[in-house]
């Protein structure tokens, strides 16, 4: 059977890999989830869940030196806990923003976020903020609003599309589709996505999930979501967790 798989560019895969395994010398550690719930402003973007892998790596090394935390002898879990204690991690929209930015940069279509995301600043202060700190001011709402995205049906899903999940305790969530499988007839059979997810006991942070498409003519909430918590075995499907799904 000739299955067609459509994937994201290699540059984006490389970025996701860098987030998935931060290079901390002798250790490679998955970037944990972090969200700026206290709305701290004016700090480094790596401290508000919006840093790049290299920025996060640098901050971990700086803080390891400051706190005399031995990165070489610590386990992955200890390092992840250390990162969380120092507010170092990535949130869902920060991760997707950097992935999309890597994509458009690899295609040489844009160099900066503000070139392909319309922020609609309401005043000069916001205009300056979006000009100098675009990623820090990007969130799920901006990425998935009517100005910056169009809704698509499941059967038209492509790598690079995002899925917005509403109804979480802390607001909306966003995942990035990285590959779409289609059968020889062109029907979508599986969607693979990556995200920085919070709702997992031991392995929150950068994760990959799959959606088994049962009927591509139905909405995503009617499909079979397969992402599983390693510790509890609970499958984090849409049911019971979200009220609405749109893929943009």
């Amino acid at each position: 059977m000739n299955i067609q798989q459509y994937q994201i560019p290699q540059e984006v895969k490389d970025l996701i890999e860098q987030y998935r395994y931060l290079d901390l010398g002798s250790q490679k550690v998955r970037t944990p989830y972090f969200i700026n719930k206290n709305r701290i402003r004016g700090g480094l973007r790596s401290h508000v869940g919006k840093g790049t892998p290299s920025e996060l790596t640098n901050e971990v090394k700086i803080y390891a030196k400051l706190r005399k935390f031995d990165l070489n002898s610590a386990s992955e879990d200890e390092i992840v806990n250390f990162m969380k204690s120092e507010a170092l991690g990535i949130d869902c929209s920060g991760f997707v923003s950097h992935a999309l930015l890597a994509w458009v940069q690899s295609q040489q279509r844009a160099k900066r976020m503000r070139t392909f995301i319309n922020y609609k600043p309401r005043n000069i202060k916001q205009r300056l903020q979006y000009l100098t700190k675009p990623v820090m001011n990007t969130n799920v709402t901006i990425l998935t609003n009517d100005i910056n995205s169009d809704p698509v049906k499941v059967k038209d899903a492509q790598p690079g599309d995002v899925i917005k999940l509403s109804g979480y305790v802390r607001g909306d969530h966003i995942v990035l589709i990285v590959s779409v499988e289609k059968d020889p007839k062109g029907k979508v059979t599986e969607i693979t996505y990556v995200h920085s997810g919070e709702r997992f006991t031991v392995d929150n942070g950068i994760r990959e999930g799959r959606i088994e498409v049962i009927d591509q003519n139905k909405s995503l909430d009617k499909q079979n979501w397969l992402e599983e918590d390693l510790q509890t075995g609970v499958k984090y499907t849409y049911e019971g967790l979200i009220k609405d799904t749109k893929n943009h």
């Binding site: 004016g42 700090g43 480094l44 973007r45 790596s46 508000v48 919006k50 920025e55 640098n58 700086i62 030196k65 100098t132 700190k133 820090m136």
Partner: peptide, 21 residues
């Protein structure tokens, strides 16, 4: 730089701390 771009220019400032880090 931190204020404008939310990123570090040096690992730490003043410069002698950067060299220490």
């Amino acid at each position: 730089y931190k204020k404008v771009f939310a990123r570090r220019l040096f690992k730490m400032a003043p410069l002698h701390h950067h060299f220490q880090i």
